[in-house]
């Protein structure tokens, strides 16, 4: 390019800026990001927005269809369930349980998985292999079976979902981080840093980690969507959140008795789960296509 202005300095975008640019070039990913931002906002603001309490029952309005139906009423936007509870308020409160819970679980699992995975990845030989494969046995137990095992030991309930899904998730993080760190460790630029006299902590944090973050971010988005589906599945099977709870999967289980009479008590929580998971996957997909070309 010919520059007319001699004072003009060509600006080079930073690494992060370029990733962000690629990311927002994908409109679907941006939609997903907005949806997630709204969900996070909802998790914090639900008690102030929801028109009713999630347990408030109205015996005058039982199984009322959603407002767009001819028998519906705007007062109950998504209709009511068999106890006359407002589904809209319950969905809003469910954001906190299903989505908020998944975030908590994933970050707790990430914390533990990161520490173990990083240590085992930095080590070599038998020790590394033992630490890395120690949790492979847990990896082979499907998350739902792990949850069944946890429920058999400590009984059903929302707090136990935390342990069930969390225990199933930690080995995945350990494996992902272990592999990523191990792979980077073989590369020449790490050897160069070693020859420069960097100790292993410096190598890990300043040399290897900058190249592992993107894998970690992708893994986290995948884990969040898997966690939401697991929490909801457990609620649906009545092994997780229990009856009056507005957790989305549990709401569907409660609506199951009226499946034929009032299909919206099932459809609406289902759509809520679908939209949430879809927007997270859209962001994950966008991030992957923004980050991965850089690796090759």
């Amino acid at each position: 390019m010919h520059l007319n202005n001699i004072h003009y300095e060509e600006k080079k975008a930073t690494h992060l800026r370029r990733i962000w640019q690629t990311f927002i070039d994908n409109p679907l990913a941006l939609v997903g990001l907005w949806a997630i931002a709204c969900l996070i906002l909802l998790t914090l603001l639900t008690p102030f927005i929801a028109p009713f309490s999630p347990e408030a029952q109205n015996s005058q309005a039982i199984l009322m269809p959603p407002s767009w139906h001819e028998h519906g009423s705007v007062e109950y936007f998504f209709g009511t369930d068999d106890l006359g509870r407002d589904i809209f308020s319950r969905i809003l409160h469910g954001v906190q349980l299903t989505f908020g819970m998944s975030l908590v679980i994933v970050f707790a699992a990430l914390f533990i998985g990161f520490i173990i995975g990083a240590i085992s990845g930095m080590m070599t030989g038998l020790k590394s292999s033992i630490l890395g494969h120690l949790f492979d046995a847990l990896l082979s137990i499907p998350s739902l079976l792990m949850a069944i095992l946890v429920v058999a030991v400590i009984g059903p309930g929302l707090t136990n979902v935390f342990w069930a899904v969390g225990i199933a998730m930690v080995p995945q993080f350990i494996r992902a981080i272990h592999q990523a760190v191990h792979e980077e460790l073989q590369k020449d630029y790490v050897t160069a840093a070693k020859l420069d006299g960097a100790n292993s902590l410096q190598i890990f944090w300043y040399v290897i980690m900058p190249n592992v973050w993107d894998i970690l971010i992708i893994q986290v988005t995948m884990a969040i969507s898997a966690a939401i589906l697991d929490i909801a599945a457990l609620g649906f099977l009545k092994l997780g959140a229990q009856a009056p709870s507005p957790e989305w999967g549990a709401m569907m289980a409660q609506g199951l008795d009226n499946l034929l009479l009032a299909p919206w008590t099932i459809t609406i929580p289902g759509v809520a789960i679908l939209i949430t998971v879809l927007s997270i996957n859209l962001v994950g997909d966008g991030l992957r296509s923004a980050l991965v070309p850089k690796r090759n």
Binding site: A232, A233, F236, G249, M252, I266, P269, L274, V277
Partner: peptide, 9 residues
């Protein structure tokens, strides 16, 4: 992304 129990139902 679709929850399998909702799809099945």
């Amino acid at each position: 992304s679709v929850p399998v129990f909702w799809l099945g139902l």
